[in-house]
Design a protein around this nucleic acid. Structure first.
Lengths: 130, 130
DNA sequence: CGTTGCCCTGACGCCGACGACAAGGTTTAG
DNA sequence: CTAAACCTTGTCGTCGGCGTCAGGGCAACG
């Protein structure tokens, strides 16, 4: 299949597919006229790329998964390098969750205090009892 | 004070201060020779900017807080626009926490299954019982 | 007088995954 | 024959908060 069909079947753009190629993630053959030609296995690869991108991986992190698929494994996750990336990413996510949690607390506190101050000021303005 | 001193006292760079100025967040006077001159109140403003940046706000979001400080309030949080931004950011953080939580779960599952598969394969290779 | 240490205004680089265009070649259908 | 619908490579733009020159001015000290 050619690039347009692959793009449509994979739910992405031709631009993305060419970009993945420059990054060494997809390797089409070329037909006589210079057109890119992909086989079915590449569709699988592109799906893997898209799924991992959606999770927040960068293309660099995705490379091992593609290699794993290309090595013939049913899942891109099972190779040692992929597992290593999964571990690292999980740790990153955990760290980020922690940070976001404390940010959330801080925002909540700021908001609470700001509102409290506004209400207090409102009471004073109206001369209401505390 | 001039830009170098303010940068040092605020724990940032002169480049950042000039950038904040282009974004309309800081407004120094100019001395006769064209140098930027800041008063003490601006130090306060820059601290506010830095604190909110550290929490993950963009400069656009920070503008209301600076305006609030400049309006004479002790805290940049108490003005209606600031409160609105705080609410919106809190909601954004909550949404992001949800997303990140599901991402975490997915990664954890992928990792678990990948490891399980590897161990299973390992058993088969060694001819060990299941 | 020169050196040092401030300050000034541009303006390009960065990062990452593309979108959007330009300017052309190919193939197919009518 | 021509128009439509593909395809090619190449290049610039995007977003944000700066870092980092480049090229030049001002002030103070010895």
């Amino acid at each position: 299949m050619r690039i347009g069909e692959l793009a449509e079947r994979a739910g992405t753009s031709t631009r993305s597919l060419r970009y993945y190629e420059t990054q060494g993630l997809v390797r089409p053959r070329r037909s006589a006229n210079g057109y890119r030609v992909y086989d079915e296995a590449e569709l699988r690869v592109v799906h893997e790329i898209r799924a991992l991108l959606a999770v927040g991986f960068g293309l660099d992190d995705i490379r091992p998964f593609v290699a794993c698929l290309r090595a013939g494994h049913a899942s891109g996750d099972v190779c040692p390098d992929s597992v290593a990336v999964l571990r690292r990413k999980l740790a990153e996510v955990d760290a980020y969750l922690d940070r976001l949690g404390s940010v959330r607390r801080q925002l909540h506190d700021q908001l609470t205090q700001a509102i409290a101050y506004r209400e207090e000021t409102c009471f004073r303005k109206r001369g209401l009892p505390r």
